[in-house]
Computed example of a mutant assay.
Amino acid sequence: MRRLLPAFGAAMALAAFVSPAAFAADPVPEIQRSGSVPAQPAGSVHTLRQIPEACARLEGAFTGQAAEPYKFAVVRSSPNCQPRARFVDAAKARPSEAAGWKFNDVIRVPSAVCPQQQAVVRVWRKPAAVAPPELDAQGRARLYLQDEKARAEAAKLAAVPMFAASMTIEGKACGG
């Protein structure tokens, strides 16, 4: 499994095993998937979804272990990518429609080894009104360091879109 983005760490892995009852009444996701994800064998790392604006990729793998049946990670897609959105820890952000988040996607991945068990990844998106900088006298959009430092000190920086993802295991465990 690849390295998690620095903002996540071990808290993301521990927060991934939330009770399925907490998501019993999921809203309708923005992305409607046609067809199902093929069953994945144990030990096979697979990409669940790419989020280019956050320079991130969601990866997962069934482990074949009862204690931790599925490993889930948010991986940086490229070291040169400049993100236009942030990925935040879902356990800390607690995304909900009441807090301005949009339920973006739900991905269900069945296990090839244990067909009655599946990993369910829920992706949330918090939009932000991002406007390009005003054009200067030469018709170019420019940001000046001293102006941006002053905005940062005054806490008047523009909001950045955010994404959060959580993972649960649903179904009965095999061989137990």
Rank of each mutant, 00 (worst) to 15 (best):
G175S: 14
R86H: 05
G43A: 05
R49S: 10
M1H: 05
M162D: 06
V121P: 08
A25K: 13
S77L: 09
Q146F: 11
V18C: 11
S96L: 04
A56W: 11
E59G: 04
A165L: 05
A66N: 09
A10V: 11
C55H: 01
P110G: 08
A21P: 01
A7C: 09
Q116M: 06
V106M: 06
I51W: 06
A98I: 06
A154P: 14
Y144L: 10
A164T: 01
P79F: 02
Q118D: 07
A61Y: 03
R142W: 14
T168P: 00
V45W: 12
R3N: 03
F17M: 10
A61H: 06
G35F: 01
A91M: 02
S78K: 12
A15W: 10
V160C: 04
Q146E: 11
P79Y: 00
Y144S: 06
G171N: 07
E153Y: 08
S77W: 04
A22Y: 11
A112G: 01
V106H: 02
S36P: 05
F163S: 08
S77I: 04
R33A: 14
P133Q: 07
W101F: 02
V88Q: 01
F8E: 04
A16Y: 04
R49I: 04
E170A: 13
N80V: 14
L145C: 03
E148I: 05
V74N: 13
G35E: 05
G100T: 03
G35R: 01
D147H: 12
M1W: 08
Q82K: 07
P6Y: 02
G171F: 06
S36M: 13
S96H: 06
F23P: 03
A22F: 12
S34C: 10
E53Y: 07
R57F: 08
C81H: 04
P79A: 02
A42P: 04
E30W: 13
A7G: 12
H46D: 06
A165V: 04
L145M: 08
R125Y: 15
R49C: 06
C174V: 00
Q117P: 01
A24D: 12
E68D: 03
P115V: 01
L4G: 01
A22S: 12
E148C: 01
I31L: 09
